[in-house]
Write a protein that binds this DNA or RNA. Sequence first.
DNA 1: GTCTATAGATGGATAGAC
DNA 2: GTCTATCCATCTATAGAC
Lengths: 219, 219
Amino acid sequence: MNDPLIQDPADNEEAQAATKAAVFNAAERLFALHGFQNVSVRDITAEAGVNLASVNYHFGSKDALLFEIFRRRTSELNRERARLLHEAGARHDGKPPVREILAAYFAPPLRWASPDNDRRISVQFIIRARSEGTEDMREVLRNDVSHLARFADALMAARPDLAKEDVYWRLHFCLGMVHNNRFAEFDRLHHLSGGLTREADVDALLKRMLDFAEAGFVA
Amino acid sequence: MNDPLIQDPADNEEAQAATKAAVFNAAERLFALHGFQNVSVRDITAEAGVNLASVNYHFGSKDALLFEIFRRRTSELNRERARLLHEAGARHDGKPPVREILAAYFAPPLRWASPDNDRRISVQFIIRARSEGTEDMREVLRNDVSHLARFADALMAARPDLAKEDVYWRLHFCLGMVHNNRFAEFDRLHHLSGGLTREADVDALLKRMLDFAEAGFVA
DNA sequence: GTCTATAGATGGATAGAC
DNA sequence: GTCTATCCATCTATAGAC
């Protein structure tokens, strides 16, 4: 059909970008569902419907592709959290209460994970990256705490009566609550509760998390 | 030195058991530190100082070895938790308060993880198994909720005023707090807090976790 | 630029010597 | 039973044809 020799440059660029995006999305999806080590370049290119060499051509290597997905998604997630934190500050003369700080942290991944959101898979990817990531990714997570520091600072401003140590630990507990929201854990809870828990109701889950975490902070 | 031809059967059995235990411990250690997919049978046998074929001879396959470690450690951990829950019940006419129920769940992995405990590595193995485990292991985790059900029942008895749904969700949040106690997360928190947090103080950490979780439950 | 064919490396498993 | 040597599958990455 499309003879490459008579394609104009714009079509070429477009086709190239489309191929790269297809690889990116297929990789994110497969990694999120099956884990990094369990997905091969062959799986990715087959899922994307492109040739085997595409991963190396467009991204350099499998690990580089992985890292690029990780960087983009965490960047997007943290930017959205920072925006919500900023908005909460604007509503309260720069000193938002604990509940609104926590909401800025909790809400983005919950909204992304809602069943009708196409970012649903990205959340699972990010959570998986925390425990299964390469050394590169874990180094980023370990060293790039500037984003978290903004939340810690806001919490300390909201609760100046608490020792800093206490704030850091309670923030740690809140992070645990967030990171435990994996498909597998929801399934297990669903099974344990005999079907009572409905994680698809994002607003209700956010409220539950905030009630729990705020109580722990205020105590 | 020891000619196998003149060894008596008892020595043989002993040597065999020692080899098997060496493989078991080396595998648990390497899996906990580096992840399942990143450790090869060659790594394990080299670490244990035994020959390459030992894994298949004593355990059948790499996956079977993995599964056996998982089964033994989760069994030990859950048995200890059940014992503490039983003791808490004995102290309170069968209806222990929320804090003591949670303590029975939180304490065992924390005590195991204390720096001077040789079970320290087992806790990391178990936590890693939750997210990186094979399908076999995840199936066990998903279906074997009888142990968790005892804790859910105890919590519902302690707080009969709460809807069951609420109890399950709050238990889920508590599980998240526990599962987030990985080396990597402690390191990150240590980095974020400028060295303020000291996870080695197990009793203090247990108290912090109980304060936070109890407040979330009582609210 | 795209894709096929293959190099090069590694891993799990096992046959066979002792 | 133990261990070495080796098989065979699978993977990433790349060279080279088109």
